[in-house]
Design a protein around this nucleic acid. Structure first.
Lengths: 218, 218
DNA sequence: TGTACATCAGTGAACGCGCGTTCACTGATGTAC
DNA sequence: TGTACATCAGTGAACGCGCGTTCACTGATGTAC
């Protein structure tokens, strides 16, 4: 993506083909889920023989790892960009929602059913921290009404290693967790189709949850 | 499970072996996820040849369908039992949480990442409706403070076919949806391990969300 | 109670399939003089 | 500018594997007289 300018034609070709492989991988995931992802199937779709892909990825695991990384990166960039453009917490929420709706399976690759035994690559935790930081920043707006001290904010005050580098008070940490879990609750049920036959508009439930978060500080 | 008393020994044996197959299926799902479920692997685990299982299930699809059905049934029974024992909304929430923690992959089989193309068996919608009814009943307690009319409650008043058979007012429908999505948000992130390295106690976040639902009517 | 028959659980061989992955090789592309 | 060499993308054959599923068959269990 970020060419240094000193790329040889061969390097350029390599990165381009890698990107093309990933695109087909995403299409396949969107069509049949991540567990059905197959190198041979991708190769066939690209009109190339199976082993050819091993020039670009060490194997299936490395490809999936790379897709997970890209998904995290994409979400982090989306939120950071929105934040830089002046979006408040509600704006970030809608950026998140749009990002999720654009490719549900990409969302589920991060927040969906975990495969027992599989562990995400280490550097995703750094990207995950970046996402949290962006949201935490938006949770510490000066104008917010002070939230009441609850048993949980007291607990958070003593268990805030995960936000050690952030100056947010416990109430803001709670606000962030409520923001994150509530939006994920609506989004994941919507994307999984659990509202499909119910007839109401999930977007309105999403905004209703947002309004509630804005109204009540906790 | 519910023997009529007029079961022949052979029928009893059949249902027992079917149950044994399902148990091994659940173990396998817990160990490697639902997508890794394999009839041959189950057979090997039972010390029996692969084709033997076809006496009990028409194929892999029927087995999975049956597991999905059982998962729904189990959750519906759990909530109905708790409700019959006098549990209020918070009690039902904890029953839900206990049920989910007892077998995360069973929870994800219902509420996890959908496999594109797969559709749950029809009768699960009936069980799903039973679950909603139980929760909706608990959302219409007489002592609850009247919730304010919001754009979303107005929308729900016009889109309530999914609760057509229930006398709950739109505010109660909203209350149910907030209850459902918020608890799912906390639960699914917890079960997926997203809080694992954060250090706080997910149970306290769960109760904090419950307290918030109790405090604010909407 | 005993015999003749039907039912049915489970076996083992076999089918075709697609998977991930390795390997030796061909042919094109780029590099060094 | 032209030749000699190195690099590397892609091929095709082959490996072993486990999958779902079918089929004809054996042997035990239950049923009818």
């Amino acid at each position: 993506m970020a060419g240094t300018g000193t790329e040889t034609p061969r390097e350029r070709y390599r990165t381009q083909v890698r990107a093309e492989i990933k695109e087909h991988a995403w299409e396949q995931i969107a069509a049949a889920g991540a567990s059905a992802l197959s190198l041979n199937a991708i190769a066939k779709q690209m009109g190339v023989s199976g082993p050819a892909l091993y020039r670009y990825f060490a194997g299936r695991d490395e490809l999936i790892t790379e897709l997970v990384r890209d998904a995290y990166r994409s979400l982090a960039d989306t939120l950071r960009t929105a934040s830089a453009a002046g979006a408040d917490l509600a704006g970030l929420a809608h950026a998140l929602r749009d990002w999720a709706l654009a490719d549900p399976q990409r969302y589920f690759l991060i927040y969906g059913t975990p495969i027992p035994g599989y562990h995400a690559p280490e550097d995703t935790t750094a990207i995950s921290a970046e996402i949290m930081t962006t949201l935490l920043d938006a949770c510490t707006t000066p104008g917010a009404p002070p939230s009441p001290a609850t048993p949980f904010t007291a607990h958070l005050a003593e268990h805030r290693e995960w936000a050690a580098g952030h100056p947010a008070p416990p109430e803001a940490l709670h606000r962030f967790l409520a923001f994150w879990t509530r939006l994920h609750g609506v989004l994941s049920l919507e994307l999984a189709g659990h509202f499909a036959t119910m007839g109401f508009d999930p977007a309105l439930l999403f905004t209703a949850e947002l309004d509630d978060l804005r109204a009540h500080g906790s």
